[in-house]
Design a protein around this nucleic acid. Structure first.
Lengths: 356, 356
DNA sequence: ATGAAAGCGCTAACAC
DNA sequence: GTGTTAGCGCTTTCAT
């Protein structure tokens, strides 16, 4: 059985053990320059002769040297740490964000600290201490935190840069990355209308998420622009959860007079609609078309597979990480420009021509 | 529009700006002791007069002091950083692990670094540099990484402690936290048998996950112990994905001669089975019982809801974090004992009495 | 283009 | 019980 944990330092100064930590001084000695020059090479600073740089890089490789992140952080202005805050019921969303952010961070030697925030508890109490001890270079905020006033002001007070993913409003307050939720909902609605549906039900998302309002608007705008009325009782409030979608669908589909299509503001709720349809033995899409939003993994974990909107979640997170890292480099701290990324309508089997 | 990013330091040394960083020296001055004493209080070291400690704590509170994690890490032996490595197709699993680990870490002032590992790429290349630069106190390994030899040896070589969540084997190599997968599968199978099922299909999980073998064994043992035969063609290989479950179910349910129950090694595959049943217009559970494993969010995102095994994922991750943090404190580096946590059979609507 | 020296904010080792 | 003195491994500032 292996000793545990394997000790980081050898016990008596023998130099041939594994993981004797090599420092910048070792590299300096090996390449015959000062540590300052090594530092310059590491940080891609100008004013190093090509030949010198090569020698240093060779020494780095030979010694397998890795700069200590704590030392860099303590001495310098970068921490090489980006935070991701989330309080999101959807695991698929959360992992997508992490994957997208990491992909960019790795290239630049940054790492990701994840901090779930419990918005039912005291937020400031969760956020303030971590901001103070960790001194991260920046924080990525995901919905609904992107719009949470306490989180935003805690960040500002602590002097930590942040980028909001898919914020719902207050667009001038800080940089963000987003997609056009209104337009996406608009196009999805047009897709349904193009299929011949005239009586369409809609399930609104969680009121705390800014996107909910935008998607709702897109739906209404498309109906109006097509000269269609949104009938009384055809719009239900949901909470972005399967359960809330299920319940909304029960109200929508309960009577004999029912819509021929339902557009839910996210996939989880759309799955709830499918479950109700299934229970009522309604054929999807022959008797009822169902559309979702997000293209979470769940969209494919159902039969028929869900027509939905692909949100570029990973790409948004990657862009956010990028903005943060870029911001650290800048002297003036000027805001990198906010970005709107493209969505994609994913038409699968849950939507089809209106019946009759 | 707010300035961006809010600057951490004021521009000219005015002391009344926000977030002028307060250090241990400020606390020492404020409480009239040396920095060493402050350090002692911070680290709950013995040999501090109660009165002195109170004064220091008051100063900490008054100044809103937070120790700088990089400085602590550089000077001392703890980094206050725990890593979580994953390469898991199931987002629900991943977030559960993170939530469980964070809950424990927060109490002790530790933070979580998440590192997705892409096992289709060069693993050592991903792991080694991060281990060297970050010097984390420990790493939590989730399946299938818990059994990945390259990851394990990279960790050992770097001298970083680790705890494996639900490893499949090599149990003596390092500490782990697990549940009894074999027993859980055994009990689920007995549940089915108790319902009158005699002809039961089984879908094996991903071959890289150690749990797959154990669950399969539990199934076979239960059948054997009940004097039941596992019929030819009733066991299909899956990959833990919805798609693989779907395809396995098509083979299992394709002909007229089909099992009355199917036990899938995880929920995603069970959902695939449900989709096929649905398409074939088989009533679940009247004509076919379906059981899953994991109790992921998806288990409730279907109708009828899935009978499954609740894995204590968050609790396992929390225990792993705990072991790691405890290990850091110990002088001898002795292994904290590995743990087996309890599972729970969650009987919902997808299983029922065998037909006829 | 390069280097010497001075910290960053803590913990550790050893005084007292 | 408490304080003093050294660093930890880097970046920064300022020489040269």
């Amino acid at each position: 059985m292996a000793k545990y944990p394997p000790r980081r330092t050898d016990s008596a100064g023998r130099g041939t053990e594994l993981s004797v930590k090599v420092t910048i001084h070792d590299v300096a000695r090996e390449s015959g320059v000062s540590i300052k020059t090594v530092s310059r090479v590491l940080n891609r600073e100008p004013n190093v002769k090509a030949d010198t740089r090569d020698r240093v890089q060779a020494a780095v490789a030979a010694l397998n040297y890795r700069p200590n992140i704590s030392a860099r952080s303590l001495a310098g202005s970068k921490a090489y740490l980006i935070g991701v805050f989330f309080d999101n019921p959807s695991p698929g969303y959360v992992t997508d964000v992490q994957l997208g952010a990491i992909a960019r961070c790795r290239q630049e030697g940054y790492h990701l600290i994840v901090e779930p925030i419990d918005s039912t508890a005291d937020i400031h109490e969760q956020v303030e201490p971590m901001l103070a001890t960790l001194r991260m270079d920046g924080v990525i905020l995901t919905p609904p935190l992107s719009d949470h006033p306490v989180v935003l002001s805690a960040l500002e007070q602590a002097g930590v840069a942040y980028v909001r993913v898919a914020p719902g409003g207050d667009i001038d307050r800080a940089p963000w990355v987003s997609m056009d939720d209104r337009l996406a909902a608009y196009e999805m609605t047009r897709h349904l209308i193009g299929l011949g549906h005239r009586d369409i039900g809609f399930i609104i998302g969680h009121p705390d998420h800014g996107a909910s309002r935008l998607r709702h608007e897109g739906f209404r705008d498309a109906m109006r622009d097509s000269g269609l009325a949104v009938r009384e009782g055809r719009v239900e409030q949901g909470m972005f959860s399967f359960r809330s979608g299920f319940e909304a669908a029960e109200r929508l589909l309960g009577g004999a007079d029912r819509p021929t299509a339902i557009f839910a503001s996210n996939d989880d709720m759309a799955l709830g609609v499918m479950a109700v349809a299934n229970r009522l033995r309604l054929d999807v899409p022959a008797q009822l078309s169902v559309a979702g939003f997000d293209d979470t993994p769940g969209a494919k974990i159902t039969w028929p597979q869900l027509t939905t909107v692909r949100q570029p979640i990973a790409a948004m997170a990657g862009a956010a990480a990028d903005m943060l890292m870029r911001g650290v480099e800048r002297e003036d701290g000027a805001p990198p420009p906010s970005q709107v990324l493209d969505f994609e309508l994913v038409v699968r089997e849950s939507t089809g021509p209106a019946p009759r």
